[in-house]
Nucleic acid binder design. Structure first.
Lengths: 241, 241
DNA sequence: CGACCACTTGATCCCTATCAAAAGATGTGG
DNA sequence: CCACATCTTTTGATAGGGATCAAGTGGTCG
């Protein structure tokens, strides 16, 4: 248990990257590892005082804000090793809520103590800054995808993003289970659930992927990449003219 | 010149916030202050090696990526005191380009030396982390606005954001000059330039604001706030039914 | 003064949201 | 283990809004 971070399979994606074994000891001392949380539980809520950041060891989490009409606005999906809650530091309260999409094991890292430790361990400071930078980059990519791309491309970008992230975590890049419902995908992409359903149908009809419920099988990865933005206009669409 | 940061009017918005006068000396030693850059110059380009972050002392900057068809995809507009280039740390190269929208005076902060100094000065480390957190929050807000809101609301959100940011910098919250062209606004909001033009017309027709070229005068700030998202549905629209 | 942009205004078409309904999945209690 | 209720997903039909195409206006800089 004391060597938790060192033996964690997410070592290379998470805070310990680049930190020496002896320094990881310092990090491990401040990390709280909780028991598994069932689906639908909150890690934190919008407006809660910001004291810690969180990382899932296993299981996916969604983050979202709630409009005054009560509707969820999904900001992102977080796989194991991806930091959660960093947006709370600015205001001192969490800017979004985070809820588990499935059974999730989380690590909680008290932020003040992390800051202290980072001062003593340059490599940890650097990795923390790098991970924050990654969060910025990630949101910029989302911004480009959501703000300016066609619905089909947005969906392709999301599927590809999941594919890449699953493969970084040692899972198949072409066969995986979606951790979220269609309606969550739609909400995240700024589309109607019906549109997502129809887009997925089209992707199946064109042999790009096969879907059974939440099980995705990417049959034509190059084509999915193309749809996600490799070239300006979709190439194979004779039937539409 | 040596006391540049301390006497800077952006003191409260920028890296020095919360740092003691003696420690600001350490920061000032590593900051390069350039002569004013004319409109249309690059601070850095996508793919450039990441070595520094930038802050404008005066003048606005846009950041954007370029699709392989050569089209700009504007990610954000940056007013004085807002950090630029933090998204480059993850990959070691800048994730976007930054170009001046008008004459701009910039400070360049070499990142490695900033990291070192932050280790020695806890308040600086904290403020750096806070500012990175703000960049994350800012992009999340953009994400919510761009991804899920109606065009009219997106525009209202942008105008309101500029209003708030100008007033934080000591300018009027209701009368200001847009630093960017309509086409940039459209690109940023994921809309056609024609749509932006029509939306602005509607906002003028409803007495929410007056526009002459790039000069904006917000006549009805509460209504603009309402349009930007205070309540689920727009309230005063009898003429449309 | 003319050329080049940025901006505005108008007309049309396509795409996606919306409404509606059915089919499928999930879970609960009898 | 089944029957029922609820929720998710799919499919269909319709209408509206914004992109696009097109033309015209206005401003700026040489």
């Amino acid at each position: 248990m004391q060597r938790a971070c060192r033996s964690c399979s997410l070592h290379e994606l998470c805070l310990p990257l680049g930190v020496s074994d002896t320094d990881i000891d310092l990090l491990e001392k401040i990390v709280h590892r909780s028991r598994p949380l069932p689906r639908g539980k909150y890690l934190f809520r919008e407006g809660d005082p910001f004291t810690s950041i969180f990382v899932a060891r296993s299981g996916a989490v969604k983050s979202f804000t709630v409009g005054q009409d009560g509707s969820e606005q999904i900001i992102g999906f977080h796989l194991p090793g991806e930091l959660l809650g960093l947006d709370g530091l600015t205001q001192g309260v969490h800017a979004a809520s985070a809820r588990t999409l499935e059974t999730v094991s989380v690590c909680e890292v008290p932020f003040e103590r992390l800051e202290e430790t980072a001062r003593q361990v340059p490599a940890l400071q650097h990795q923390l800054l790098r991970l924050m930078s990654r969060e910025i980059t990630k949101r910029e990519e989302q911004l480009l995808s959501l703000g300016k791309q066609a619905p089909e491309r947005r969906l392709a970008v999301l599927l590809l993003s999941l594919s890449v992230r699953f493969s970084q975590r040692g899972y198949s890049a072409t066969r995986f289970l979606l951790p979220m419902a269609r309606i969550d995908i739609a909400n995240f992409l700024g589309l109607a659930a019906e549109t997502v359903s129809r887009l997925l149908r089209r992707l199946q009809d064109t042999q790009v992927l096969a879907i059974d419920g939440r099980a995705v099988d990417i049959l034509n990865l190059p084509e999915l990449r193309a749809l996600a933005g490799a070239e300006p206009e979709e190439p194979a669409r004779e039937a539409c003219r």
